[in-house]
Design a protein around this nucleic acid. Structure first.
Length: 109
DNA sequence: ATCGTGACCTGGA
DNA sequence: CTCCAGGCCACGA
């Protein structure tokens, strides 16, 4: 399929496809969207969309399994941790998870 | 066309 | 665990 400026759209569509109980890293999402190194942009999109966009933004963490929300949005940080816990994901006290355990790899075995 | 920006990534100390 | 430095890239003004 065409590689146009779909990046943003691809990312959004992709995040919507992430199944419950699984997570993806920004870099991973970027890779699936067609630009493995545009991880930063993914974060930018999530920041732009933010909560209330109907997008499961909480299923996206950094490649170290940590919640990378930056700024004074500590409330959202806690919220993300809560939502992840609700889906059966263990969240450490330091806002980190075992991403290797919950990583979503598309359809590949 | 350039410029600034960042919810990233990796590696090292 | 923390802190720092360089690289990469799509997007809006």
């Amino acid at each position: 399929m065409p590689q146009r400026s779909n990046f943003k759209q691809q990312v959004i569509a992709l995040i919507k496809r992430v199944p419950r109980g699984k997570v993806m890293s920004y870099g991973q999402v970027a890779a699936f969207a067609g630009s493995p190194r545009a991880a930063r942009q993914v974060g930018g999109i999530l920041r732009a969309q933010g909560p209330g966009s109907g997008l499961p933004w909480w299923r996206i963490v950094n490649n170290q399994g940590a919640i990378s929300i930056k700024g004074n949005w500590e409330a959202d940080k806690r919220l993300q941790a809560e939502l992840l816990k609700k889906e059966g994901i263990e969240v450490s006290k330091n806002f980190t998870i075992n991403i290797d355990k919950y990583r979503f790899s598309g359809n590949k075995p």
